[in-house]
Amino acid sequence: MSKKLIVSADDFGFSEAYNYGAVKGYQEGIITVLSLMSNMEAAPHGVNLAKREVPSANLVLHTNFVHGRPVSKPEIIQSLVDKNGQFYRSFQWRGDDPSDQKCIGDIVVTAEDCYKETVAQIERFRELTGHYPNHFEGHSVINKNISAAFHQVAMEYDIHCMTEPEVETKKWHPVHEIMIGNPLFLEILNRGLSPEDFYEDRLGILDSPYEYNIIHLHPGYVDAYILDHSSLTIARCKDLQTACDPAVRQWLKDHEIELVDFSSIYK
């Protein structure tokens, strides 16, 4: 069984500087997917940039419940937004797991509100790109209510999504998220990906028993918006540098790992 690898540039649309870096990663590196945060102010810039520079790129939806303003009217998704109509940040959420170090607050979002906003962001994606995505996933946080909403949307729209457990259907191949359960996940996320992470197979690509695998990167440039609104700064630049390293692409080739996007998972 040959291994196929999807390499996603998450957070596309987060800021204009980040958009330029993500497109560079697609043009010159191993990025195969641009995952769009359709609710963000820089989303139209990202879509227009992609249409101009990489028109064949696979744009998918990076569903976002923790940054900026929602696509839905705030009054119909009250569990997700504060009194100013802004999304609650992830640290304000209550996690499913008491040991969760990210979600340490007391906000409990409902599956109904997550469903409404996911649908709204999918429809905004269509408005921006002219088509529905062939995949969607969640940004930053996932819990049982988000998973329930994602499952409902995936079946109604017939779109593949990444969630635990994965939606099972005969219409697409299962996709394995390489870093799930990997003890190095947070280390690599926070410092940024290095070429050695590939050469020493710290990601676990070679050991994966799955045919279709995915890694989520954040390859991009940093601007004032990123500095003010994200804990990932230098790591984004490191991800971009590694993604564009020719030796990394050669390592994948040497190990017969095929770079693909989400169009390849549909049967």
Rank of each mutant, 00 (worst) to 15 (best):
Y199M: 11
I257C: 04
K238C: 14
A235L: 01
G181T: 00
E187F: 07
N190E: 15
D201G: 12
N213K: 09
T233Y: 02
K238N: 15
Y221V: 07
Y225V: 01
I180D: 09
D207A: 04
I257N: 02
P219V: 10
V248D: 08
T163N: 05
Y212L: 05
L217C: 14
S263I: 04
Y266P: 00
E187D: 15
E177L: 13
N190G: 06
D158R: 03
R202S: 06
Q250K: 15
F198W: 03
P246K: 13
D228L: 07
L252V: 03
I180E: 14
G181M: 05
R249K: 15
E164C: 03
D223T: 04
P165E: 12
M162E: 09
H229S: 07
R191G: 15
E211K: 02
H176D: 05
K171E: 10
G204T: 08
K171W: 06
L240M: 15
T163V: 03
S231V: 10
D158E: 14
H216Q: 13
H255D: 00
H229E: 09
V222Q: 05
L252Y: 03
S208H: 06
H229K: 01
A243N: 05
L184A: 13
V260A: 05
S230L: 08
E166P: 00
I257G: 03
L193Q: 10
G192C: 08
N213R: 13
L227K: 12
H218G: 01
T233G: 06
L217Y: 06
K238M: 15
C244S: 06
I215W: 09
Y225S: 09
I257K: 03
R236F: 08
L203V: 07
H173W: 10
